Amino acid sequence: MNAIPPLLDHLVLATPDLASTVAEFAGRTGVTPVVGGAHPDLGTRNYLVSLGGSSYLEIIGPDPEQSLPEGAHSFGVDGLTEARTVTWAISPPDLDAAVAAARAQGYDPGTPHPMNRRRPDGTLLEWRLTDSDTAHPSGLVPFLIDWGASPHPTTSGLPTTPLREVSATAPDTDEIRTLLTALNTELHLSEGPVGFTFTVETPKGLVTFC
Rank of each mutant, 00 (worst) to 15 (best):
P5D: 13
P5L: 13
D9R: 09
H10D: 03
H10A: 06
L11K: 07
T15K: 00
D17Y: 00
S20V: 10
F25M: 08
G27A: 13
R28E: 10
V35L: 14
G36S: 11
G36H: 04
D41T: 14
G43Q: 10
T44L: 01
L48Y: 05
S50C: 05
Y56F: 15
L57I: 06
G61M: 04
E65C: 00
Q66W: 02
S67K: 15
P69L: 11
A72I: 03
D78G: 10
G79R: 12
T81E: 14
A83P: 01
R84H: 08
V86W: 04
T87C: 10
W88C: 09
A89P: 02
S91H: 13
P92D: 08
L95R: 03
A97S: 08
A98K: 02
V99K: 09
G106K: 10
D108F: 05
T111P: 00
P112Q: 03
P112R: 02
L125F: 03
E126A: 13
L129G: 01
S132Q: 11
T134R: 13
A135Y: 00
H136L: 12
F143L: 15
F143A: 11
L144G: 12
P151V: 05
P151M: 00
H152T: 05
G157H: 04
A168H: 12
T169F: 07
P171M: 13
E175W: 01
R177P: 01
T178V: 12
T185N: 08
S190L: 03
G192T: 10
G192A: 08
T197G: 01
T197A: 13
V200M: 08
E201I: 00
K204H: 15
G205W: 08
V207A: 04
C210Q: 14
